[in-house]
């Protein structure tokens, strides 16, 4: 288990400020944030490589705040593999093993054929595998991964994510992985923390953070397509109304007054040729701006009275509705599909 309580680190003008989060034992925790958010600093604070101004770091319930890195038993893998260039692959992997067998780490990472190689001759993907093997061979109680797949090409990245997740589940390893990639976070995370400018904006089960972002900024960072800022008020019937420019959006949820954001999933938006006679409380005329492929779906960019919205629809829907740039269309979504935060 990894637990950070009010962890503050100062680094020049930057500060990781009061970071609090927890990753349960055997869970895969992900910290999501843009470049410069403080992700690496957070990992280095857990590893003991950055002195804390205040706060506490616990590993498996033990307070390790005062312990040096070598007594924390963490494995660290950076985006750049940082293999020791004066040692070959075998000696890199065995570096932290201290007499323990490296066979399991070698087998799991599939690097047996690389053991005799000079590390300077390895490809980027091979280097990352060796760096993972080196971290695993040291027998860490937690694994800290700093954008470890960012330098890999997309197919290899996808394969590495699958492999990493499989090892972690199989071994019950506790992992804290930082990334700027929303898809990577969605694919890997049991628990998710969203970090922005040195602050943990939200943390909790990944499904909870993705489906219930606490603020507009969190919604943006977790990749919500439609985040509208406005003023919220609660009607007498309990319905929340958010006025966002020319749009009045109806939502359900807890009572809300004042500045707020409405978050609407692109797949919650229904398109039709005319205003639908349905239970959807939100219905607006719109114009199609552009269409773009997004996996098996089509991403439809819309202009709703000057407000941009994005809908995700099937290719069949595009054909049936004859969707094309400039087409007049009707947009609707249910009040229950709107998350106010």
């Amino acid at each position: 288990m990894i637990e950070l309580r009010d962890v503050t680190v100062r680094q020049g003008a930057f500060a990781l400020d009061g970071a609090t989060l927890a990753v349960g034992r055997g869970q895969y925790g992900v910290v999501l944030g843009a470049a410069g958010a403080g992700k690496t600093t957070l990992l280095e604070a857990v590893a003991g490589l950055r002195p804390l101004v205040r706060g506490t770091v616990l590993l498996d319930g033990d307070d390790v705040t005062a312990l040096p890195p070598e007594r924390r038993h963490v494995g660290m893998v950076y985006q750049r593999s940082l293999l020791f260039p004066h040692l070959d692959v075998r000696r890199n992997v065995a570096y932290g093993a201290r007499g323990r067998s490296i066979d399991e780490a070698v087998e799991r990472t599939g690097i047996a054929a690389l053991l005799g190689r000079d590390v300077r001759t390895l490809s980027g993907g091979e280097s990352q595998l060796v760096a993972l093997a080196r971290a695993l061979a040291s027998g860490p109680r937690v694994l800290l991964l700093d954008e470890p797949f960012a330098a890999l090409d997309p197919p290899r990245r996808a394969a590495m994510r699958r492999t990493m997740r499989a090892w972690q589940r199989e071994r019950g390893l506790t992992v804290l992985h930082v990334t700027h990639d929303v898809n990577e976070a969605a694919l890997l995370a049991d628990t998710l923390a969203v970090l922005d400018a040195g602050h943990v904006l939200q943390h909790g089960p990944a499904t909870e953070v993705f489906s219930r972002p606490r603020s507009g900024r969190v919604a943006e960072l977790v990749g919500a397509e439609n985040v509208l800022a406005g003023i919220a008020s609660t009607e007498s019937d309990g319905m929340i109304v958010l006025r966002a420019g020319p749009l009045t959006i109806h939502a359900t949820g807890e009572r809300m007054e004042g500045p707020a954001h409405a978050v609407i999933g692109a797949d919650e938006i229904v398109l039709s040729r005319s205003a639908p006679a349905s239970s959807a409380r939100n219905s607006f005329p719109a114009r199609v701006i552009a269409l773009g492929a997004s996996g098996s779906l089509v991403r439809v960019e819309l202009d709703v009275d000057g407000t941009p919205l994005v809908a995700a629809v099937t290719r069949g829907a595009v054909r049936e509705l004859a969707l094309a740039a400039g087409a007049a269309i009707h947009v609707s979504f249910k009040a229950t599909a709107v998350r106010i935060c």
Partner: peptide
Amino acid sequence: RYEGVARTLGDSFRESVHRVTLP
């Protein structure tokens, strides 16, 4: 960061300098 990695792999500060930085 090479020294940092060596520390997480069990090296003391002095060992990390002798085993990584100086070589």
